[in-house]
Structures are given as structure tokens and as C-alpha cells.
Amino acid sequence: MTHFFFSLTLGLYGVATMVYLACLIRTSEKLTRWASRLLVSGCIAHILSTVHLASTEKHLPLTNMQESLSFFSLMVVVAFLIFERRYKVTTLGSFVTPVVLLMLSVASTLHGGARQLPPILQSNWFWIHALLAFISYAAFTIAFGVAVIYLIQRHFLKTKHFGALFQKLPPLETLDEISYRCFAIGFPLLTVAIISGAIWSEKAMGSYWVWDPKQTWSLITWFIYAALLHGRLTIGWRGKRAAILSIVGFIVLLITFFGMKHSVTW
């Protein structure tokens, strides 16, 4: 059943991605509506797949790379759909859906399957830690997409190229607002995720902070986003530099997520 929903999700996301990309080329109300409808259907299938997996495993499906990637991409889709409703930014979907599709395709090639839950993960602090981390990751992923579009749009404006793509992409202020929202949601969640991770580490291994690569890179990620949010709140920092830092933050986040195996799990 999980497998069926998972395949359905992958298929729907695939079609949705194509329609979102088509939206970059063609202006059509109909196309825009269908892009969103397809993605919502994919999202529902994704939720069903996740819930079904959780109910068979009897815990949140966040315990291996496959499950985590799938959950991560689900959160990205949910976050995007919320922003799309609010700001009518279809073109953001043209940038986000391919990333989601890629993540989920990678997830589908990984080894999943039920296994005995390691005792080290049997802690409420772990679940809080993982859940919040993924929601914050999703917010930062959206912020990354927005930053890329911002830089493209800014380039068009500064070089005075007013082509078809320029017409399609959202206004700079809208992008700026979305990215600010993402930081305002993502950063506090990341903070709590890191704290709950430390508490879990203490419960499981007897030490709050062991300076393993995962923890170190998490801290680097945290500092980057802290600087961004701080700059924004104190001097109103935005624009090109903020967009570049947001992209750097996301790359570091990816390194943290993919590159750094936790010393105790996986």
C-alpha cells in the first residue's frame, strides 16, 4: 500500500513538474490551475503514503535516508502550496517542483524497508528534533528557490532585459516577503530542533554536544541563517547579498543533511 501511494506520488509530481515548467513558457489560467491541482493531488498521495508507512512501522517515518528524504520533500510541497495560495507565485513552482521530484526520485532508489527501530532512536526528543528540523529545512528550501528567482529577476532589471521570463517571474518585493517569511518560520524551528537534538544526545549518549560532523555543520547552518535574520531585523538587510547568503545557507544545509552521517545513527 505504501509502495502504491509512493509510486502514485512520484507519477503525479512528475506530471505536475512538467505542467509547472510549461507555465514558464505559456501564459494560461487553465494551465496554472492544473499545475496546482496536480501538485495538490500528488501531495495527498504523498501524505497517504507517509501515514500508511507510519502506521505499519508504528513510528514517524524519519529513521533512514529514504524516509527522511521523502518526508523532507513532503514538507517542501506543503510549504510551497501554502505560499502559492497566499502570493499567487506559480513560477516559484517551476523552480521548486523539479527539486522535489529529484529528491523523491533519489529516495525511491534507496533501500528502505522495515527494520528494528534502534533503541537509541526510541526517545521523544529524537522525534521532536527530526520533525522540526525537516519543517525548517522545507522553509529554507523555499527561501532558496526564491533567492534564485530574485537573482535572476534582479539581473534582468539591472541589465534591462525585459523578455518573456522577466514578465513571468514575480515582483522583487513579493520574493523578498516570501523569503523573510521563510526565515521567520524556519529559523526558530531550526533553533528548537538543534536544542532538542542536544537534549536527545544527552539522553542517548550522556553528552549534550559531541562535536560530531553533523552537529558541527548544523551549527554552521544555524549561524548563517541567524546572521541573515539578524541583518534583516536590525538594518533591514535584503536584496542581492541576502539572496546569495540564503543560497549559501541552503548549500550548507544540504551538506549537513546528505554529507554528514550522524555518528550514532544510519
Binding site: Q153, L157, F162, F166, P171, L172, E173, T174
Partner: peptide, 9 residues
Amino acid sequence: ELAKKILGD
């Protein structure tokens, strides 16, 4: 139109 692309609303 151009201003809207920068300033939004």
C-alpha cells in the same frame, strides 16, 4: 508596469 515588477503592489 516596470515599477510593479520591482515594488509589487
